[in-house]
Every structure is written in structure tokens, then in C-alpha cells.
Design a protein around this nucleic acid. Structure first.
Lengths: 352, 352
DNA sequence: CAGGCGTTGTACATCGTTGTAAAAACATGG
DNA sequence: CCATGTTTTTACAACGATGTACAACGCCTG
């Protein structure tokens, strides 16, 4: 026969105290004598009690679950990021629910306001299709941290300095003597996304080096995945482009590009140097290995999680009894995380 | 000012009915007159009501959340699988919590019995380190579906026919005239894991072709990732092995192996043919592209989710009033999902 | 030793929903 | 018009935990 799981009342009875006292012990309330604390702990261990999260959730309004919303989990960058986020959340006693938006605005919106609001304590969102307007109207939504370029003033976000990173990457290519640099995934809109920021960095580097900028160097892509990178390169070559370098706005595009270049008999890096972004594992084992901009993914994840944790606690503090010492609600945070250039064969060639 | 979210009682008041009636409408209870049903629907829309999952969870004991437990999310196979599982779960109105076990038995055990039991309605577990004993003792755990080789009789599980798949892959290599086939990640234990099953298939193919089996052909790895594949190959070559084919027990090992072979100036497939397992996207763009065993991942995911959904509903049905028509509890299911060989450059060479 | 204060412990109500059981409303047939 | 059966609706009590408010206790001080 299956023994029913013990409840707080069973522990209370077993320890000879009230239910509330057990609750106090569980929640590390200060004013509990060592004697009773020990007794309760013992009862808990003895019965194998563990709190029922449904009850706690209903009572406290917090579930201990946060949502991570990414476009696609099978894009390695997001998978690696998710891994770090889950790890970091664990440290903060949070559990992570992973959602995929498919880069779809509807899904992202739903994530932002909808499904979560009574189930999830907070949201970490890596937006692809959202606009600033969407963000502005998120009333009643749980605390949210955005990953990637800042879309809207009032929101917390965590990212590397994409413009600067792209500039450094481009400067590296220029330093190699390359002048005709195509940008796979580049976008010259005034927009606020990551692609736009990286494109700005590219232009800044060109301009600083006195190289003319040609909008035709930006090759748009439907998605940031390998097939798109391969297609873009194939199309460009067929259209007569003769680049001596590619700045690919993520590693998936770059890996697809490497493949397409190989198929066209173009040597990397001799004929064309290739840079990516993200430093995914695949780029460390490709042929040739891929030079890339490596964001500190662990730092992105921990920053986002800690920031979110802070917001959650903040939102849950008693409605401020005018206590002057109480920390004022934190102003919107822009956390910039470190990145570095990782130079490998696709720009520097094999070591001898 | 923020308006508090409406509760069921607000809807009830607004529609002029009892709370229970609202609940009945929400849950599509049959005996509600069309008139009241409409009125309640209208009130719901008008107030923008949405059920509070905490309350429902506490009352019903079900959260609508299932856990997916994989060793590491940044192994592309698991990321791709997770994507499919999340999709499939969505179809069944289930939400997915992703856990990473790190291939650690402790974590897997915790997943199996611990954290979930009052929070998660069911578990999909891709075990790496669990033993049959661990599985047998999962009392009081929520319904569980295992992915991968069957570890224990009483458990539901979903997998491809790993032994057969490995046999086909090996036969393909043999048909190419290869005789000296190393198995990266091979394991000859009597064990029950996926690696063991694939190794059996390899041996069966050798034996059928009259090729002698040498246990030294099995190259153990610490993990099933690119570095391990590269290391294994490097070590083997240094030790004087001169294989003409590699059967890598997953694509990550294979991609690592490709890189190592390249570094040693070994041509693929001319000198050494390489096969992997899983058909991850990386293998479609590697140089050379990777021949592999492609499991129907979407089918694995949907089978697992549907099976789990079934178990959850089953576990929640009223304790059977002797109704003869009630479906008997399903016996443990072994679902075998289709796979196929995908032949690419790493065994067949480039097309001309 | 009364009075005051800070520490420990408890009774009770409550979070939002749904199952139970029974009442109310409605139909049907004699 | 009443007995009978079938819908439709409702009151009430849970589910398990914790916040509030207060009682009990010990200790110190005057």
C-alpha cells in the first residue's frame, strides 16, 4: 500500500507543535527556539516531509518558476544559454520553464503578458520579433529581463556591447588586409535589434579604416541558421560577388557559409576569411575552425537570473511602510557583459 | 492604478450565478444550460478572466506541467528533442520544465522521485547513469516515460531499435568494403543502455559478414561530445590503429572525429568512412557532410508526450467503480520509433 | 514583586479552485 | 395536480501552506 505523503499537519502532530511553527522552521523564521527547531527538523526528516508547492504557491502567490523564452531551442546558442540559465536559476532556487517563440511575435507577446502572469514569477525573454510598443504595454506582467539589444527604455536587459563587438570583429578582418567584407544577416534599419547594432559596428569599423560602405554588402537572411548562411553565400557568389571576408552575424550562419564556400571551391581563409558571433561548440570543431565573437554566456545567464530574482523579491516586499532604509525600486538596469574575440583558422589559417 | 485580476467569484457575481457554475462552464461540464453558459462566457470575456493555476493545482493535484530531464541541453540532439517535446506538449495543453541531469545519477534520481512529485504531473527522462534498480524503486513518483533503451521491465519507454539501427549502419560500412571498423563510444558490457545496444548491433553485423570482432575496436569515451570524439580518434591513431571506418555512437562524437581525422591528414571517406547517430543539423553542413542514423525525433517526442498524457489521465481517473468498460490500466508500453540511414559524404564521398 | 518588554508559540482565516451532495427547477406521465 | 425522473444550479467543504494577530512565557528593571 502506498503511504500518503506527509503534510505539514503530520509533521506538527509528530513534533508536538502547531502547524505554523513547522512553517516557521521551514522558512527559517528567526524566533524559534533551538529546541523546537531541532524537534521539528527531526520530525521532518523522520517523515520525509517536503513542502507542497501548490499550497505554497496559492498562499504566497509565488511559484518559484521562471520562464525562459527563446526563439528556437535547437539553435545551439540558445541551447547553451538555456543550459547556463537553468544552472544559474538552480542556484537561486528557481526552476526554469523553457518556451519557444519560433521568433513569432504572437508567441512572444503571449509569453510576455499571458501564460505567465499567474504561474511564473518572472520571465527571461530573448526577443526576435517584438517591437518597443509591445514592450511598453506589458501591464500586469511579471518581472521581465530581456536578453539582447535594448528595445525599450523601461526594461531591464542584459547583453554584450554588440556594436563594439562587431566593430572589433570587422577591424580584425581589415587588419588581415580584407576590404570587401560581406555581412551575412546584416540589417541597416534604424531599428533596435541585435542585427542592427552589429551592422552599425561594422559600418563604424569600415568608416574608421576609410573603406567605402556599400549597402549591397548586407545580405539579408530569413532566419539565423545554417541553411540561411549557406543560401546567402551561394546566392552572393552566383550574383558575382567576390568578397575577401564574411562577417556572419552568428555562428550558425557562419557554419552554413563555410559549407557553401567549400562547395564552391573557395578556400578559407586564403580566399575568404570568415568571422561569426556566439562561439558555439560547433565552431571549435568545424573545418576550418571558426573565428568568432565569444560572449560570456555564463555571465549573461547569471546576470539575467540574478536581476530577475532581485525584481521578484522586490515585487514581493510588503507595500513599503514608508521605511526610509528600504531600498528604492531599482531603476531599469542595462547590464553589459564581457565579450572577446576568439581567433581560429577561418581568419588566421592553420598553425604550422 | 492596477486593477486586480478578476477571480472566479467576480465572474460569478457579474454573471449572476454561483462560482461553481462558472467553474462548470470553464471545465466544459455537460449540464449547463446554453443561456447560462453564454452569460458566463460573456462575463469571462468582459472581465478578461483566466483561471488561476495555483488554485486549480492545489485543488486538483495537477499542474499541467511535465518535466523533461536530459543530460545536457547543449548537446544538439537533446536540444532538438526538447524542441519537439515542447511542441508536442503544447498540443496536449502541457507545459514543459526542462531539467539537466548532467548525466549525474544523483540528479536523475532526484528528478525521478524527488522534486517532481508534487509539482510535475509526469516526467520524460532520458537516462544516462540510472540503473534498473533505481527505476524499480520509484514509488510514489509521477508517471514516467523513459527515452532510450529499455532499462527496466515495468517502465514505459520510447526509442528507435538501436541494435537494428547500428547493425544497418555497420552493414553500410561493410558494403563499402570496410573491414577495420572502430566504434567510438562503444561499450561491450552486458548492460542495458543505448551504447550497449548499438554495440550489439555492430557485433551482429560483423558476425554476419564473417568479420572477426576485436574488443579493442571499442573506444570508450567519457562523454558523448565533440571533444571526446576528437580525443578518442587522436588517441587511437597515436596508438597505431589504422581503421578504414568509424562507427560513432552519436553525431557529436562523429563531428569531433571528423575534425581529428582532418588534423591528422586522414581523408574522409577515402581513407576512413565515418557514420554517426542522431542526424543533428551540424552533420548536414560539416565538411564532409556526415552519414548518420536518423531517428524520427518528432515521433519520439510525440509518442512520449502522448503516452505520458495517457498515464496522467489514467492516474487521475476516479478509483474505478468496477465499470467494466473502463479501460484497464495500460500495461507498460515499449514504443519503437522509425529510423533511417542518411548517407552523405562521410561514407559516400561527394557527388560529382 | 509588579510592570514592561522581547521572544516563542498558536488559533484562525485565507489564497482560488473544484468535488460532493443536495436543493431547485423543469419535464413527463398517470 | 401529484409522483417521478432528469436537468441545472448551488452551498459548503476541502486541497496545503502561510500571514495576522494575539496569547503565553521568560527575563529584566525599578
Amino acid at each position: 500500500m502506498v503511504v500518503a505523503r506527509p503534510r505539514i499537519k503530520d509533521v506538527a502532530r509528530h513534533a508536538g507543535v502547531s502547524e505554523k511553527t513547522v512553517s516557521n522552521v521551514i522558512n527559517d523564521y528567526v524566533h524559534v527556539s533551538d529546541r523546537t527547531r531541532r524537534a521539528v527538523r527531526e520530525a521532518i526528516d523522520h517523515l520525509g516531509y517536503r513542502v507542497n508547492l501548490a499550497g505554497r504557491h496559492l498562499r504566497t502567490g509565488r511559484s518559484g518558476v521562471i520562464a525562459l523564452v527563446v526563439p528556437e531551442l535547437d539553435v545551439p546558442y540558445f541551447a547553451e544559454l538555456a543550459r547556463h540559465v537553468i544552472r544559474a536559476a538552480e542556484q537561486c532556487s528557481l526552476t526554469v520553464l523553457v518556451h519557444q517563440s519560433g521568433g513569432d511575435r504572437g508567441h512572444e507577446l503571449a509569453a510576455l503578458s499571458g501564460f505567465g502572469s499567474d504561474f511564473v514569477d518572472g520571465i527571461i525573454l530573448s526577443p526576435l520579433a517584438l517591437t518597443s510598443d509591445d514592450l511598453r504595454e506589458r501591464a500586469g506582467a511579471p518581472p521581465t529581463v530581456l536578453l539582447g539589444e535594448l528595445l525599450e527604455e523601461g526594461a531591464d536587459h542584459v547583453a554584450i556591447d554588440n556594436e563594439q563587438a562587431a566593430r572589433e570583429a570587422t577591424e580584425h578582418l581589415i587588419a588581415l588586409g580584407r576590404r570587401n567584407i560581406l555581412v551575412i544577416g546584416g540589417r541597416d534599419a534604424p531599428g533596435l535589434g541585435t542585427a542592427e547594432a552589429r551592422t552599425r559596428g561594422y559600418r563604424a569599423a569600415l568608416s574608421a579604416a576609410g573603406i567605402a560602405y556599400d549597402a549591397a554588402a548586407l545580405l539579408p537572411v530569413a532566419a539565423f541558421r545554417m541553411p540561411d548562411g549557406a543560401d546567402a553565400v551561394t546566392r552572393a557568389l552566383r550574383d558575382g560577388a567576390r568578397p575577401d571576408a564574411l562577417l556572419c552575424l552568428n555562428d550558425q550562419l557562419a557554419l552554413g557559409a563555410l559549407r557553401a564556400l567549400y562547395e564552391h571551391g573557395v578556400r578559407v581563409p586564403e580566399d575568404v576569411a570568415v568571422m561569426g558571433f556566439d562561439d558555439v561548440e560547433g565552431g571549435r570543431y568545424s573545418v576550418p575552425t571558426l573565428s568568432t565573437v565569444a560572449p560570456d554566456k555564463a555571465a549573461v545567464a547569471t546576470s539575467a537570473v540574478h536581476l530577475l530574482r532581485h525584481r521578484i523579491d522586490e515585487a514581493n516586499r510588503p507595500p513599503d511602510g514608508g521605511d526610509v532604509t528600504a531600498a528604492a525600486p531599482l531603476s531599469p538596469q542595462d547590464r553589459v557583459v564581457a565579450h572577446r574575440l576568439v581567433l581560429r583558422e577561418s581568419t588566421e589559417g592553420a598553425r604550422h
